[in-house]
Structures are given as structure tokens and as C-alpha cells.
């Protein structure tokens, strides 16, 4: 198990959890989103390779209404 912070909320995930696993868990796979891991943007091409580790800080963003 690993503890990470996702969009400001502490959550627990399994060890060796990939970014793509996280997206599937939150039903965000194939949605128009972008991910930042510890302050760096993660390109879509590495969602399947990048493993999450303890204390990682993840931000997932999307478009909402705005002016």
C-alpha cells in the first residue's frame, strides 16, 4: 500500500499502482484531463508506465465553465 495526495485529498492505493490504474479507479480513463505529478506534467504516453509511490502529490485537472 502507498499513501498519496490526489487533488488535495489523502488516499491510499495499492503498491505499484500505475497512473492509468488511478484514472480507471476514478472513471477518468480516456477523458479530457491532464495530470501533474509532484509538480511536473505527465505526458499521456507514460500513463501506462509511470508507477505511483508513497507521498506522491497528484493533481488531475479538466475544463470547467469559465469566462
Amino acid at each position: 500500500m502507498a499513501k498519496i495526495q490526489l487533488n488535495g485529498k489523502k488516499i491510499t492505493i495499492q503498491t505499484n499502482f500505475l497512473i492509468i490504474d488511478l484514472l480507471k479507479k476514478y472513471k477518468l480513463f480516456n477523458k479530457k484531463i491532464a495530470i501533474e505529478l509532484n509538480g511536473s506534467i505527465i505526458p499521456k504516453s507514460v500513463y501506462k508506465k509511470k508507477k505511483l509511490k508513497n507521498n506522491d502529490i497528484v493533481e488531475i485537472v479538466h475544463f470547467i465553465g469559465g469566462g
Binding site: 485529498k9 488531475i60 470547467i64
Partner: peptide, 19 residues
Amino acid sequence: VTVAVRRVNIIDKKKPILT
């Protein structure tokens, strides 16, 4: 149309999204 960039709502997974 303009849109803003904000955190995804991870608590309510079923919440509709603008796009």
C-alpha cells in the same frame, strides 16, 4: 468559448462535466 482549468471532482465520480 472560454473554459477554466480546475481540479477534477474525485469525490463524486458521476458528476457531469462541461465538455
